[in-house]
Design a protein around this nucleic acid. Structure first.
Length: 307
DNA sequence: GCGACAG
DNA sequence: ATCTTGTCGC
């Protein structure tokens, strides 16, 4: 019974031990440097009111989805969502190879560079879709060095960013039970609990995006926006629990990563698909055939980096 | 001193 | 992050 806790302890310790102390120190330093470049003020021109002359038009959403086969292969994506329709109008993506493992607290050093690349591609391909604000899958200043992925990326591309976390990341006494306890008192859709740590500093908010959701989304300032403005925007972007820019980026990158896995299966020495279609009937067979169709529907334009 | 740790 | 079936509810 005693080793359940020990295993958790060990695996976390092992994660941190995967980077050598010098790299840790360097990254720590870099985060503190970047932190000083972050602003938590509204530095943008757009307005939420669609009738305004300066109405917000394009919101960006970024995410990275991984292949289950090769742990280091992933699809990085940037989707452009039109406001206020919340429809996807454009996407840029790339199949990428991750350098290192995920280390809690250092997500940006694994993902940020790939995301920056997508903004550069957008700049060249479709500059007219340049987003005015970006929602990031991960935290902003809600981070041990007040420099999570959303903030890190925001500084690199010099644009307003918002961090959207789906689970609670511990910082400054904000344990999971503490956050959920604060969130429990939020009852109305669109309501939120401000996440103030033991130090008194406000790190973000636990937001109730739908009336009956059990879990909050964790919102934190990335760069060039206030928490209040971030929440105001998010309140207009939630068709479901996760705001559309992040949700669509998530779904779409997963879709693409699966296509890539299937393509690998197609080029594999043994073709198990044939065997499976003969072996199973009904729904199972139907599902397999759908996957098969996916393979045949692969288009060159879906894989610019493969051609 | 330990432990809580985004994707 | 990823793997997954059924299942509960509108």
């Amino acid at each position: 019974m005693e080793n359940i806790e020990d295993q958790d302890k060990k695996s976390f310790h092992e994660l941190r031990a995967q980077i050598d102390p010098e790299v840790y120190e360097k990254w720590d330093c870099e985060q503190i440097y970047i932190r000083n470049l972050i602003t938590e003020e509204d530095i943008f021109e757009w307005k939420l009111d669609p009738k305004s002359e300066k109405a917000l038009k394009y919101i960006g959403g970024v995410d990275i989805s991984f292949s289950q086969k090769h742990q280091d292969i992933a699809v990085a994506i940037l989707v452009i969502i039109e406001y206020p329709s919340l429809k996807k109008v454009h996407e840029e993506f790339e199949i990428v190879k991750l350098d290192g493992p995920y280390i809690p607290g250092f997500l940006a050093f694994r993902e940020a560079a790939h995301l920056v690349k997508l903004f550069k591609k957008l700049q060249i391909n479709k500059p007219q879709f340049t987003p005015q604000v970006i929602m990031v899958d991960g935290n902003g200043i809600l981070h041990q060095n007040a420099c999570g992925l959303a903030s890190h990326l925001g500084v690199l591309i010099d644009k307003p960013t918002i961090g959207i976390g789906k689970t609670i990341f511990y910082v400054d006494g904000l344990r999971k039970d503490v956050v959920l306890d604060k969130f429990k008192k939020v009852t109305d859709e669109g309501g939120f609990a401000v996440l103030q740590g033991d130090s008194g500093r406000v790190w973000g908010a636990a937001y109730k995006s739908k009336k009956d959701v059990v879990d909050p989304i964790i919102v934190s300032v990335g760069h060039k926006i206030t928490l209040q403005s971030a929440l105001d925007l998010i309140s207009k972007c939630c068709n479901f629990r996760i705001p559309e820019p992040v949700r669509v980026a998530d779904i779409r990158s997963r879709e693409l990563v699966k296509k890539i896995s299937l393509q690998e299966a197609l080029t594999a020495p043994t073709n198990s698909l044939e065997f499976l279609t003969e072996k199973f009937d009904g729904d199972k067979k139907k599902k397999i055939m759908e996957k098969k169709n996916l393979v045949f529907k692969l288009k060159e334009e879906d894989f610019p980096s493969l051609f």
